[in-house]
């Protein structure tokens, strides 16, 4: 039984259901309560759960993220919301030096069942301190899990999956997706953390992507289909762990690969995926791999410049044609 709702509503529903199920779950962050969430995700939850479980915090990213770690260590199941990924850098010390390390540093004694949600991505003319896609950075860190829901179904399921995980899980929500609509089936069995998903089957080339770029890739695949090129679109869903098995399976199927990522190219998750394909499936490739990523600039404000900085369906199409021309 499925219903059509927005990505925002899907997260809210998941938050509501998990909080109803488990009294240890609470939400904490800037403006999550009285304001209703800076992206209105938590709208109405304060009224239902009260200010002890929907906690408005001061602008103290480091302290409230660290407090989430402490609460997790001490028996709770906190969800920390950080307004945007750029602000998460103020909490990077807690995420990297505590959340990611405590289990190992303590010789397995102290795990940190913490969930951190944050908005990511560009496209809203918010310039260079609100628009970046830094999820690839976090995927660098052993001890963390990094999820990137693209669909309404994943936005819903990943909250529950993350809360059920005994270790810190970061969920990156592309802010342009909050209004997107999709169908939600609350009765289906969630696809586990670390599993990629094939969104469109194709035999000619593979587009590996995640988050909002999944939809850009699907749009590009439609355009390519009209030219007789059948692209396979893979939603990675999780940047750490990466689903190597699914990645190599599609490489072996199409032999041509492109990665689409809103992050920058240099030292990035797209570079990591290419490296893994080189290591594990090099001889399956019929052409050099391609990438469509954000331009290597701090994000500009002006719309035409920002559009030019971001991956777009036409750039994906152009890259696909190039890959197909290679013998």
């Amino acid at each position: 039984m499925s219903t059509v709702i927005t990505y925002r509503e899907a997260i809210r529903q998941a938050l509501r259901e998990t909080m109803e199920r488990d009294e240890r779950v609470f939400l904490m962050g800037e403006d999550v309560g009285r304001y209703g969430g800076s992206f209105a995700v938590s709208m109405g939850l304060l009224e239902q759960f009260g200010s002890e479980r929907i906690i408005d915090t001061p602008l103290s990213e480091s302290a409230f993220t660290g407090a989430g770690i402490g609460a997790a260590l001490n028996g709770m199941r906190p969800i920390v919301e950080i307004m945007t990924v750029n602000f998460s850098l103020l909490a990077l010390d807690q995420i990297m030096n505590n959340a990611a390390t405590l289990l190992h540093m303590s010789g397995g004694q102290f795990n940190v069942p913490l969930v951190i949600r944050m908005a990511t991505g560009g496209g809203k003319q918010l310039a260079a301190q609100h628009s970046h896609s830094l999820e690839g950075w976090f995927a660098h860190i052993p001890g963390l899990k990094v999820l990137t829901p693209a669909t309404v179904q994943d936005a819903y399921e990943m909250v529950g999956l993350a809360l059920a995980d005994p270790d810190p899980v970061l969920i990156f929500e592309n802010s342009l997706l909050y209004n997107s609509k999709g169908s939600l089936d609350t009765t289906s069995i969630p696809l586990a953390i670390g599993k990629a998903k094939v969104h469109r089957e194709g035999k000619d080339l593979s587009i590996l992507t995640y988050g909002i770029s999944v939809f850009k890739a699907l749009e590009a695949a439609e355009m390519l289909a009209s030219e007789g090129i059948e692209a396979e679109v893979i939603d990675l869903r999780s940047l750490r762990p990466l689903d190597d098995e699914a990645i190599m399976a599609t490489v072996r199927k199409t032999h041509r690969v492109m990665i689409v990522d809103e992050g920058w190219k240099s030292g990035s998750i797209s570079a990591e995926i290419m490296a893994r394909i080189n290591e594990q499936a090099f001889f399956e490739l019929d052409a050099p791999m391609g990438r469509v990523c954000s331009a290597e600039v701090p994000f500009p404000y002006a719309k035409h410049l920002e559009d030019a900085a971001l991956p777009q369906p036409d750039k994906i199409v152009a890259m696909a044609r190039k890959l197909m021309e290679e013998s």
Binding site: A63, F64, I69, N74, P78, M105
Partner: peptide, 28 residues
């Protein structure tokens, strides 16, 4: 670290344990 005596470490980031301690107290 020692779970039995509730000793949550030695942190080597100066002031890095304070937010965590706040969260532990919040949970209590």
């Amino acid at each position: 670290f020692d779970a039995a005596t509730r000793f949550y470490g030695g942190s080597a980031i100066v002031a890095g344990a304070l937010p965590v301690a706040v969260g532990m107290a919040l949970a209590d």
